[in-house]
């Protein structure tokens, strides 16, 4: 159906997309997970300084989340150039992807941790557990299934963001869809890329759900 050049290009695009998505998700969690924990732990603290930190974190997270990704993509180009050295290509796209998704991940983590039964945390406090012990031994393990579901949502959202990066030369399947499908009216190529994106989302979502189910001991 396609020439070997096109097939190769799509194959390479697929790899680029996976690369951008997975690396960005990992980095987004490196930033977002502690941020989410900080949001939960600082919430409703008796210390007014800690409460202040909570408010500031909340505002920063909301601010970053309210900027449309396409605009953020363009705005952070200087930052991207500073970090990666270029603003074009899949590695360069990772920078705006992480900036955009880390706050999103923080909110996902926050909501997962807030689901943990307050009574269980209280029980740990009764046993003399420190805050660090409560975070590592109670909150994170108890929220594990929910955190895994959250990460499936995060990875699929980041995947769709990465496709958007195609408009500014970001590489990957989105880039191919824009260049061939949008500018050159090669709808067949665009359809293939879209189909591939749909399949990847399905697979990632399914893996996430299964892992969550296996890890959940509440039946």
């Amino acid at each position: 159906m396609f020439s070997s050049v096109v097939t190769k290009m799509i194959g390479f695009g697929l790899l680029e997309t996976l690369y951008m998505t997975l690396v960005s998700t990992a980095l987004a969690y490196v930033i977002g997970l502690p941020l989410g924990v900080a949001l939960v732990v600082s919430d409703g603290s008796q210390n007014s300084f800690v409460r202040g930190i909570n408010t500031v974190l909340g505002i920063v997270v909301n601010l970053l989340r309210s900027i449309p990704f396409l605009i953020l993509l363009v705005t952070v180009i200087p930052v991207t150039r500073f970090i990666v050295g270029t603003s074009i290509g899949s590695t360069a796209t990772i920078v705006p992807l992480v900036i955009a998704s880390a706050p999103f991940v923080a909110r996902l983590v926050e909501s997962s941790l807030k689901e943990v039964d307050k009574g269980v945390i209280e029980a740990a406090q009764c046993m003399g557990a420190s805050m660090t012990q409560i975070i590592y031994k109670v909150m994170l393990p108890e929220a594990k299934p929910s955190l895994i579901v959250g990460s499936a949502i995060a990875v699929t959202t980041i995947l769709s963001y990465s496709a958007l990066a195609g408009f500014v030369g970001g590489g990957g399947l989105g880039d191919i869809a824009v260049r061939y499908g949008y500018y050159r009216y090669q709808e067949d190529i665009m359809l293939i890329t879209v189909a591939l994106l749909v399949i990847i989302v399905q697979i990632l979502q399914e893996i996430g759900m299964r892992l969550a189910k296996i890890s959940d001991k509440r039946i």
């Binding site: 269980v120 209280e122 003399g128 890890s215 959940d216 001991k217």
Partner: peptide, 23 residues
Amino acid sequence: DLRIARQSIGMIFQHFNLLMQRN
């Protein structure tokens, strides 16, 4: 010291408050 003192005071609850992800 309060945390250490608490280790000498056990507590049980109406809703048990067990860690659901641990056996």
